[in-house]
Design a protein around this nucleic acid. Structure first.
Lengths: 347, 347
DNA sequence: CTGAAAGCGCTTACAG
DNA sequence: CTGAAAGCGCTTACAG
């Protein structure tokens, strides 16, 4: 009941935070700091009486453990670093939701880094986050700069790559084959009888390029390949760019009758622009997207696209990382979550 | 050139991370640890000769500072906590982008917490993050649970609230008046001659409710108020819900000739559904959104909405927090960034 | 089940 | 400009 601090030991001398420490709790509970520590972190190892005294002291004093001190003493940070190339892109916020749900029960602190599709940013973020001695790292994609690879290697911290599958057996990865997905959707258009199928890509990150590989493979097999059909644009992907690139492709590619957009944003922009220009989709021009973002089901015409396991990728990648951190039998080094073809009105 | 570790002192006994420490660097550079620390953190205080020796040792050894140790010794975490109610919502990723840009040069570590619009989650996240002794906190919104307010008060950490303006003089806040914005867009519809103006809201977070206040005020002033015009739905906001709520409002509100949607997602869904049902927007039904998300300019009809200073809110809130942390003259406790009416085709 | 000692890796505060 | 000492708040490793 009483709230005056009996036995407060931490002097308010110099560097202290002036906060309640474990020693304060211990003093008030009349136990050793060690016992207070156990009562809080491994209560089953402490007798009921002392545990109750410590609990009460924690309450009375409003004790908040100091994470830095614990990390230092235990050499365990309870930090997991997640690096994504974008937060503006709904793709990665969906992945993040899965990660959060998987990590939530385990009391890890998640350090989210936004690399903005830049190797230099990734290096900078990683080297900063390495100072926190993360217990594990979640990375987007398979290809990284030499410096990043080196930091990862020397740190010996478990790493799981998300979004694509690694061919290397010792790399943990969760996602699906970007190339196969690109192949599948192109194949779909070919089977619909389309002949002049364009590929509209932005950002040109590694996933976009893998999808392009799949696209090319399908086009070659069908005898429809033509470099003029590819519109590769390094700018960030968004709706406005989709509209612009549609104009450009229409101008530069004679006979164009279908477009595979490397993501849904671009497809939305292309479809909106077709509406404005009075181009009938899919009659005159079939348009496909990628990732099946929420709007794709609602736009008129609704968007044929590739459904990708975004949330599940995050969830499974985090779970795999957790297993690896705990030294458990890792269920699989490589989790292929697959993808689905979502057939709608636009193609 | 040589890379064998002369003078490596950290024994690989028990708890150590087995990593290179400041002492290792100091030993290799033949200086005291203190000097090595200075050479790294305040190089201007160290002679050029020693600085060079330390730099070389850092390079040779691949030294990575231990953030936990520094935090503990200096009582400064260099951590800033950011709590947002959603990451799926583009509104908050835009705010986050501003925060990142403002904090980027200052070497702060950003801890992003997703409260999922839940007070309980907010409490849990905050109490976890408090263990990191943050130097500052960025919060979304003005209203928080008693426990959150208490944690904030006892910690004495600087806090800036984002998204709305606080009436209290001692609360730092950056954003704009949600109520005035709701009033302004409703007023706009009134002046367009609309009589039966509905309010479509989801999530029902505090901002949505303030906008409702503004809506009601405008409707009352115009003598058009009618509770039947309000569709308040606590579910999370998204396009699908916008479509569904449109159906419900059309069924339940006779004579409805306009809708102010509490955000653009809802407006998009409503417009898509109107397209499907063959309802002419804005001829038969005017539709307005809120926040001016990228798609709003591209949908047909393009969406009349309220442009809000999302990025700038994040940037200015972070800057204000930084100033407050540094104990600088805080330029203003309350930064009103205003909003704009974006007139397009849908209303 | 409980606790005294030592130490995690760094920085503050001081002395030279 | 440089450094020896002490300490940040906690946990490991050990002893009882």
């Amino acid at each position: 009941m009483t709230t005056n601090r009996i036995g407060k030991t931490s002097s308010s001398k110099s560097r202290a935070l002036g906060k309640v420490t474990l020693s304060d709790v211990a003093a008030r509970a009349c136990v050793a700091p060690m016992t207070a520590s156990r009562a809080i972190n491994q209560p089953e190892l402490v007798s009921a009486v002392l545990r109750a005294r410590v609990d009460k002291a924690v309450q009375d004093l409003g004790y908040v453990p100091n994470r830095a001190a614990r990390a230092l003493a235990s050499a365990q940070s309870k930090v997991i670093v997640v690096l994504v190339p974008s937060l503006a892109n709904a793709v990665f916020t969906a992945v993040l939701a899965g990660i959060q749900d998987a990590l939530d029960p385990c009391n890890y602190q998640i350090l989210i880094g936004n690399t903005r599709y830049s190797d230099a940013e990734e290096e900078k973020l990683l080297s900063t986050y390495m100072q926190s001695n993360p217990d594990g790292i979640l990375l987007s994609g398979l290809t990284h700069s030499p410096r990043v690879r080196q930091m990862l290697a020397t740190s010996r911290v478990p790493v799981v790559s998300m979004m694509d599958l690694s061919p290397e057996p010792d790399v943990m990865s969760v996602g699906f084959s970007q190339e196969e997905a690109g192949y599948a959707i192109t194949r779909y258009l070919v089977e619909k009888g389309r002949k002049r199928i364009g590929y509209m890509a932005a950002q040109l990150d590694e996933r976009t390029l893998r999808r392009a590989d799949g696209y090319r493979k399908a086009m070659q097999e069908a005898g429809l390949a033509d470099p003029a059909l590819e519109m590769m644009c390094p700018q960030p992907s968004n709706i406005a760019l989709g509209a612009e690139l549609l104009n450009r492709m229409l101008d530069s590619v004679p006979g164009l009758d279908a477009i595979f957009c490397c993501n849904d944003d671009l497809a939305h922009g292309a479809i909106f622009q077709c509406q404005r220009r009075g181009i009938d989709v899919p009659e005159q021009l079939a348009i496909c997207g990628f990732n099946d973002l929420p709007a794709s089901a609602w736009i008129t015409p609704s968007v044929t696209t590739v459904g990708t396991p975004l949330y599940q990728t995050g969830f499974d990648a985090a779970s795999l990382l957790l297993a690896s951190i705990r030294g458990n039998e890792v269920p699989a080094q490589r989790i292929d979550l697959g993808f689905t073809l979502v057939e709608r009105e636009s193609a």
